[in-house]
Nucleic acid binder design. Structure first.
Lengths: 343, 343
DNA sequence: TTGAAAGCGCTAACAC
DNA sequence: GTGTTAGCGCTTTCAA
């Protein structure tokens, strides 16, 4: 009855069932060529002993660990983890939630790793060489991140969340940024906006580029040839600064902001300048993050199905690991307009 | 030059260095009794071959995996992962960040697990019996969660984030809830509030209880014998409802809300009822979560050093695993008042 | 269809 | 101090 008794082994089960280790192994691994009677005997023995296979022993021979790494790759260490950092963003939790929803039931658990330095990157590569992970789920922030290319080259099954900035033969899931931007444009026009402007994300990121170009071309189709824009950095302060800039140039009655965090900043600045939202300026954000709900007025925004995307990302690695999905694949999700108070 | 060449083994290194496997093993594991010259030769050979120890092989013999589980234990599966769920809360990311800050450098990586059903719980216990984790970091939401007791009983080194509702001999980190509540009380009184009220958390949770009782006793010391209160559930809507209730009873010019999310809801309802914050009612929240910054006015709140707490939690498991910290321990952190616009 | 036996790469006695 | 050796628990040829 002691707690730290040695757990039952294959050998153990074999003895109880009166068969060889090999047979037990076959049953455990669901290999067909086993006499039904023996199979049943083995199953009873497993039940009886409470046998659970030892993963270390198994992966020593199979060279598979049944583990995938969930890697967050950030350019530099953020000193204040609270203010900066992906982790502070609820987005991270949503990814985790989506990933867990598919991996959990498969008995695969993601191992969390933060890569925020050269050293950490080397360590990750090492870990992979130790056979510690069968695959990698990668969230990369920095557009100049060498990690996607390194993982591809190392031959590690990898799937990214969002298309890498540098063109790389790697699988990823993403949202149709242009379509989202178009939804925003259509909505603003439908609300009667005559003169719209936009705050873009960093233009060295795919999301920054695509949301801007998508918005511009949609507005062009609506007859507005020129859309004033200011580049932001996806942070609240960045959104504030960009709004100030925009306010200096031309008047506008509609504003598309490339993410919710910046949109929050925009809301503040607009209020400070005596502009009422949505009466004077209609605002649309992007993401549908928690921020969209916590500001006043609540944000009309473009929803990214983050959990679904993360779930798909997990499915893709699992497929690649099992050898089913050999080719590099991308899965693009459609965003949706969520109308709230800001427009 | 092929990518999938078999990685170098101990044997390999031993041959290159001209010593036995045992010696290489000693060097790798930093055991002292090795001739400096040989040690150097071995180190060169390791460098040269690019050797990295195989964790599976190692843990097969040591019965240690060098992995800890980061378990989030929720009562039931939340259908809408976005709205509900711990993961949507930025708090989760902050915990992850803190945990990673100590585990990362130690080459230990947390394995993420969500326990939201009986089945998942059984699976976790199984995983532990497979020797897959050396320790567990547990975030438990439900006050009736049997997991803390189960892990204790199973003899797994476990450290919890926040004191368990059911008294259990288990290690944990927590914040001094009463002290935080006292800070809030002192602040409200200092701001000139004459009649304060409070919205508590669920009274079946330690946080709910302690913040309420701490606030009440601090107010008693300030001469306010009775503090009207309404019980909330730590959600924004819960905060709204509780505020409505409170507004029906007696007037108040100061309000302590047991967490920021509920405080946000309170802000909305107060505004709706024509109460200005902080002119008519001073509001203080608890947590200093992202929500505190994203509402208007920004929340004066009691800051929990979540990252530090999480980091300490990680240190505690590591100590317990290495056998240094054998006794059940608790580490309590002091909260701090953060003054912003709401009071 | 089943069993015997050879390792997977490592650590830890134990002998030298 | 160093090497030899016996496993850790499992999968997987290879014979039977």
């Amino acid at each position: 009855m002691s707690t730290d008794q040695a757990p039952p082994t294959l050998e153990h089960v074999a003895k109880v069932a009166g068969v060889s280790r090999a047979t037990v192994s076959r049953v455990v691994n669901g290999i067909r060529n086993v006499d039904p009677e023996l199979r049943e005997a083995v199953e009873r023995a497993i039940e009886q002993t409470g046998y659970v296979p030892n993963r270390a022993a198994r992966s020593l021979v199979t060279r598979r660990t049944g583990a995938v790494a969930l890697v967050v790759s950030e350019p530099t260490k953020h000193t204040d983890a609270f203010a900066g950092g992906v982790f502070a963003d609820p987005f991270f939790g949503r990814v985790v939630s989506g990933v867990l929803s598919v991996l959990g039931p498969m008995d695969v658990n993601p191992v969390l790793m933060l890569v925020d330095s050269e050293k950490a990157r080397a360590q990750l590569i090492n870990r992979l060489r130790q056979d510690r992970f069968d695959g990698v789920l990668l969230i990369s922030i920095d557009p100049r991140d060498p990690l996607p290319a390194q993982l591809t080259q190392a031959g590690v099954p990898t799937v990214m969340f969002a298309r890498p900035a540098r063109s790389t033969p790697i699988s990823y899931v993403d949202v149709a940024h242009e379509d989202g931007a178009r939804l925003a444009a259509d909505h603003l026009v439908a609300r009667g906006c005559k003169q719209v402007a936009t705050i873009s994300g960093p233009l060295d990121t795919p999301a920054g580029q695509d949301r801007l170009s998508g918005f511009r071309s949609a507005m062009a189709r609506h007859g507005q040839a020129y859309v004033p824009s200011a580049e932001g950095d996806f942070t609240q302060t960045g959104g504030e600064r960009a709004t100030e800039m925009l306010l200096l140039t031309q008047p506008f009655d509609g504003l598309f902001v490339a993410n919710d965090l910046m949109a929050m900043g925009a809301l503040d600045v607009l209020r400070k300048h005596g502009k009422r939202v949505p009466e004077d300026v209609s605002v649309v954000g992007f993401d549908d993050s928690g921020a969209a709900l916590s500001c006043r007025p609540q944000l009309t925004t473009i929803r990214q199905p983050v959990e679904d995307m993360a779930a798909e990302m997990a499915r893709l690695v699992v497929d690649r690991i099992s050898g089913e999905g050999q080719r590099v694949t991308s899965v693009i999700f459609e965003p949706a307009l969520v109308v709230r108070g800001s427009s």
